Simulated assay, not measured.
Amino acid sequence: MIDLFKFFGKEESKSKDIAKERLKLVLIHDRANISPKFLDMIKDDIIKVISNYMEIEEAGLDIRLSRIPQEDDTYSTALVANIPIRRVKNMGPNRG
């Protein structure tokens, strides 16, 4: 027999965790004084530069701001990029 309360409780827990992560991201953006539009501009520029040297999987691209704990119990903001690479482009003998 399936325990429906446990099943729905897991969904509620997942939704709660997702909401918590979204709130953290909003707070990080606010503290760093960076709008989502500005972050999208950075993301586009990163894609342009890296695409000169590598073929990337844009669907799997993840660029975000994150809080990094410091040794003195404070946090700093970091730009974290996860960029799946399909292949490195051939630079040829005259490039690089």
Rank of each mutant, 00 (worst) to 15 (best):
V80S: 07
P69S: 13
L65E: 04
Q70D: 14
K48I: 10
T74D: 09
S66K: 06
R67W: 09
M54W: 03
D73V: 00
G60H: 07
Q70I: 00
N82R: 10
E58C: 03
V49D: 13
E71T: 07
L79Q: 04
I50R: 03
D73H: 12
M54Y: 14
V49M: 09
L61N: 11
T74A: 05
K48A: 14
D62A: 09
E71M: 09
R64C: 06
N82V: 04
D72G: 08
E55F: 10
T77H: 11
Y75A: 02
Y75K: 06
L79Y: 02
E58H: 01
N82I: 03
I83T: 02
D62H: 10
K48C: 04
Y53N: 08
I63P: 06
S66L: 02
I47W: 12
T74F: 06
I63E: 09
I50K: 09
E71I: 05
G60Q: 07
E58F: 01
M54G: 00
E57V: 07
L65N: 01
I47Q: 11
N52I: 10
D73R: 14
E55W: 07
L79M: 05
G60L: 01
T74W: 06
T77N: 03
S66G: 04
I83D: 07
T77Q: 01
E57L: 05
Y75V: 01
A81V: 12
L61V: 10
A81W: 01
S51N: 11
I68G: 00
I83G: 02
Q70Y: 11
S76H: 10
I68V: 13
A81D: 02
D73T: 04
N52Q: 15
P69R: 14
R64Y: 11
L61R: 12
L65Y: 03
N82Q: 02
L79D: 00
L61S: 11
I85R: 03
I68Y: 15
I63G: 11
Y53W: 11
Q70R: 15
M54T: 10
S66T: 11
P69Q: 14
S51G: 06
A78N: 05
L65C: 05
T74K: 11
V49F: 12
E55S: 10
N52G: 09
P69D: 12
D62C: 00
I47L: 12
S66C: 02
I63T: 10
E57A: 05
I50V: 15
A78I: 02
P69I: 04
A81C: 15
K48D: 15
V49K: 15
S51Q: 13
A59H: 12
P84Y: 12
N52K: 15
G60S: 05
I47M: 12
I56V: 14
T77C: 09
P69A: 13
E55H: 08
A81Q: 02
